[in-house]
Design a protein around this nucleic acid. Structure first.
Lengths: 109, 109
DNA sequence: ATGTTATATAATTCTTATGTAATGTAAAGC
DNA sequence: GCTTTACATTACATAAGAATTATATAACAT
């Protein structure tokens, strides 16, 4: 699994996206993050591990707590991927336009 | 699986992203898409089904062929999700800044 | 009609993800 | 020192994803 795979896969889970949305409002500990969901604490811990692996969150130790916070930088990679695809598409779309325009000009000189 | 799940999950696979990159350069049939990969034709057909389900590609029938083309609109949903998260984060980051600035002002009147 | 080409579907197998329950650990509080 | 709190880890069950082989369908060519 490469970096981009990991990123998109991390975001493909609704619980993980909800966790990110919660973290966008400020940092939180594991228990705090687990509270709104109906899943067990170990499950949340694993989701956090996935998010951390994807670079989407940062964690630190603070006594017995492990507060997480959002790392919005990781989103850049996804947005960049979308942009590249869009640009390639637009470039080839333009080329097609030009081609069609040229053909038309030849048809009716 | 909701719409956003489906979208991110579709993009989490490197073969599918490669297919999209290829389609950004122009439409192609199933065989044509399968050629650069070492996977079987049925495997490609299934990837295409996933991409179609996510709204990322459009297909039409043309005789015995089934040409696919990119639907860049679907990317908008992903970019919108990223933007929302970024904005929420920025808003709360600003609030924290303001809070800290106010505290400081009180400390040194 | 029949063979060929392009693609879809089905059955099966393998791998990976996700969740739970139980247990371990480490810092805090008394 | 012992308990509590907050979290991690392990073991395990189940489910979802992705690939393959074999088979079906549908249009086109002859």
């Amino acid at each position: 699994m490469n970096r981009t795979d990991t990123l998109f896969a991390a975001l493909a889970d609704p619980t993980r996206r909800a966790i990110l949305a919660r973290l966008a409002e400020g940092e939180a500990g594991v228990m705090e993050l687990a509270e709104p969901f109906e899943i067990s604490q170990p499950a949340v811990t694993r989701h956090l591990k996935v998010l951390e692996g994807a670079g989407l969150i940062l964690r630190r130790a603070e006594g017995t707590r492990r507060p997480c916070c959002l790392n919005p930088d990781a989103l850049g990679e996804i947005e960049a991927w979308c942009t590249r695809l869009r640009e390639t598409f637009a470039a080839n779309y333009d080329r097609l336009d030009t081609l069609l325009a040229n053909l038309q000009r030849k048809d009716a000189p």
